[in-house]
Write a protein that binds this DNA or RNA. Structure first.
Lengths: 119, 119
DNA sequence: CAGGATCCCGGACGATACTG
DNA sequence: CAGTATCGTCCGGGATCCTG
């Protein structure tokens, strides 16, 4: 039984709504952002980079992003296994906007006196 | 007892995380987007534009956006009462981002064969 | 007209244990 | 190493009724 990662059956109201549903959630933005910074990341590296995610949530989120065609999953059948994640073309198209969001967030955090730790 | 609109006590991990927390949620993106399109909107107009929101969620979301200094709330003490919402300077800085997200979403929806209804 | 107050549910998210 | 499998919690969001 295949399940789409996101409820698109209840029609997105508009494009903004649609987009937010695809990159919403607690980790999706950061995953896309990290992947754009590092190019390719293994499962474990991704987990360490996020550092506050459980395997369940990470796997689930990655599967959703993959089903939405935002990231690519490459499996290497070795021992020990290796799986690498990278952005798809569609996913890359989102990066400028996340970058913009990153700039905005950085600026806001500085104004609040919070040290903005780089990602 | 004042409560910040979003859990910033559990420190945002990075700027992207921070930004997503402020504009995440089911309606925030669309509210900002509609306000940027119309300039100023009354509570009722906003509700009709969103058309799938309860008063509770709308009010709550607006209060959060206000606390986060993304929108401005202007109350006119008349009978019947009138309340108008508009973007703050900080809020406006987010519009290019949402605009591009809108373009991206529109394109994606078309590729999926979904008619993209304008907002 | 613009909300406030309550009650409630489902799904996002988490903790922990286990595995090919 | 890269996940599955269960079980549990929490709160975002919704339904409904009420009010200055």
């Amino acid at each position: 039984m295949k399940k789409k990662s996101i409820n698109l059956e209840d029609r997105a109201i508009c494009a903004v709504d649609y987009a937010f549903r695809r990159i919403g959630g607690k980790y999706k933005g950061r995953i896309l952002w990290y992947l754009s910074n590092f190019g390719v990341l293994r499962y474990g590296a991704l987990k360490r980079t996020l550092h506050d995610v459980t395997t369940k949530m990470l796997t689930q989120t990655l599967r959703e992003l993959e089903a939405d065609n935002l990231i690519h999953r490459e499996v290497y059948h070795e021992v020990p296994p290796r799986v690498e994640y990278s952005l798809t073309k569609t996913g890359m198209e989102l990066i400028p906007f996340i970058g913009h969001l990153n700039d905005w967030g950085t600026k806001q955090m500085e104004e609040e006196g919070l040290r903005s730790k780089g990602c």
